[in-house]
Computed example of a mutant assay.
Amino acid sequence: MELEAKIKEDMKSFGCNCPKKIAMAYHLYINLVDEKLMYDTEYCYNKDIDTLYVVARPNKNERLNIYVPVPTDSDVDVSYIGRLQENLCTVETGSSITLAFFESDFTIVMYTFTKGLALRQSAVLSNQLKMKLERRSFINSELKKNRRDILNDALNGGAVEDDDCEIVG
C-alpha cells in the first residue's frame, strides 16, 4: 500500500483533487505496467482540461500511446474526444487517443480514437461501388461455372465461333 499511496499523492501534487480521477488513473497505470507490460509508462496531468492520463509504449520501438481513464457513467461525445486530442496529442504520440472506460469494479475496456478519419461516402458513390462489386461477383460466378470449358479451350487452342473474325495465315 505504500507504493499506491505514494503514486496517488504524486498524482494529487500535479493539481488533480478528484479522488475518483486519481483512483482510475492509478488503476490504469498499474494495469498498463503490470498486466499489459508496457514500456516507458508514465502518468501525467493536463491542468487546462483537468485530466489525469497515462502514456506508454506497447513495444520498445513504437510511439507513445495516450490512455485516458473515463468512468462508464460519464457522457462521452465527439467534442469531448476532440478536446482531449487537441490538448493531449503531440508529434511524439500521434493523433490517436485511447479511452479506458472503467466500471465501478475497476474493470477496464479500452477504445482507440484517431483524429482525421475519412468522411462517409456519398449515396451516389456508394451505389456505384455496390454496382461494381455486384458486376465483379457476377463475372467471378460465371468464370467458376464455365471454368472447365475455359480451361479445355485454352489447352486445346480453342475454337473461334464468331463470324466476324478472320484467320490471317
Rank of each mutant, 00 (worst) to 15 (best):
90 T>A: 08
79 S>Q: 15
114 T>C: 03
41 T>M: 07
115 K>Q: 10
58 P>N: 01
134 E>P: 01
102 F>A: 01
139 I>F: 08
79 S>M: 15
141 S>L: 12
83 R>N: 14
40 D>G: 06
154 A>P: 00
18 C>V: 06
51 T>Q: 11
115 K>C: 05
151 L>M: 10
162 D>E: 08
50 D>H: 12
126 S>E: 09
95 S>G: 02
119 L>V: 03
109 V>D: 01
46 N>L: 00
91 V>K: 05
94 G>S: 03
143 L>R: 01
117 L>F: 11
23 A>K: 08
6 K>H: 06
23 A>W: 01
47 K>Q: 13
104 S>Q: 09
114 T>H: 00
169 G>L: 03
83 R>T: 14
169 G>S: 05
166 E>N: 08
27 H>T: 12
102 F>K: 00
63 R>H: 11
146 N>P: 01
25 A>R: 00
94 G>C: 02
146 N>F: 11
120 R>C: 12
162 D>V: 14
19 P>L: 13
122 S>A: 09
108 I>F: 02
99 L>V: 02
29 Y>F: 15
137 S>K: 13
47 K>D: 13
17 N>L: 14
114 T>Q: 02
108 I>A: 00
61 N>P: 01
51 T>R: 08
94 G>Y: 00
136 R>W: 07
71 P>W: 14
90 T>Q: 11
52 L>V: 05
55 V>K: 01
150 I>L: 13
68 V>K: 03
143 L>C: 04
20 K>A: 12
9 E>P: 01
166 E>T: 15
33 V>E: 03
13 S>I: 00
52 L>D: 01
62 E>N: 10
137 S>T: 12
163 D>S: 11
29 Y>T: 02
110 M>W: 05
41 T>L: 07
154 A>S: 09
166 E>Y: 08
137 S>Q: 15
47 K>F: 12
110 M>G: 05
150 I>F: 11
157 G>C: 04
91 V>M: 06
104 S>E: 09
8 K>T: 13
82 G>H: 06
81 I>D: 02
88 L>S: 08
141 S>R: 12
92 E>A: 15
109 V>H: 04
145 K>G: 05
6 K>F: 03
157 G>D: 09
48 D>L: 11
61 N>Q: 13
8 K>H: 09
113 F>D: 00
73 D>Y: 14
26 Y>N: 01
15 G>W: 08
108 I>P: 02
42 E>W: 07
118 A>D: 13
115 K>M: 08
156 N>H: 09
135 R>P: 02
128 Q>V: 07
155 L>P: 01
90 T>E: 15
87 N>G: 04
162 D>C: 15
8 K>R: 15
28 L>H: 03
113 F>Q: 05
163 D>W: 08
84 L>D: 04
72 T>L: 09
24 M>Q: 07
85 Q>K: 09
25 A>T: 14
157 G>H: 05
57 R>E: 05
89 C>D: 03
127 N>E: 13
50 D>P: 06
80 Y>E: 00
160 V>F: 11
52 L>T: 04
147 R>I: 07
106 F>Q: 01
157 G>Y: 03
30 I>F: 11
118 A>K: 10
110 M>P: 02
138 F>Q: 14
136 R>S: 14
167 I>K: 10
79 S>L: 13
158 G>S: 10
71 P>L: 14
44 C>N: 12
34 D>V: 08
59 N>H: 12
79 S>R: 14
129 L>K: 08
87 N>E: 12
97 I>K: 10
49 I>N: 10
40 D>K: 10
64 L>G: 04
68 V>H: 04
3 L>Y: 06
99 L>K: 02
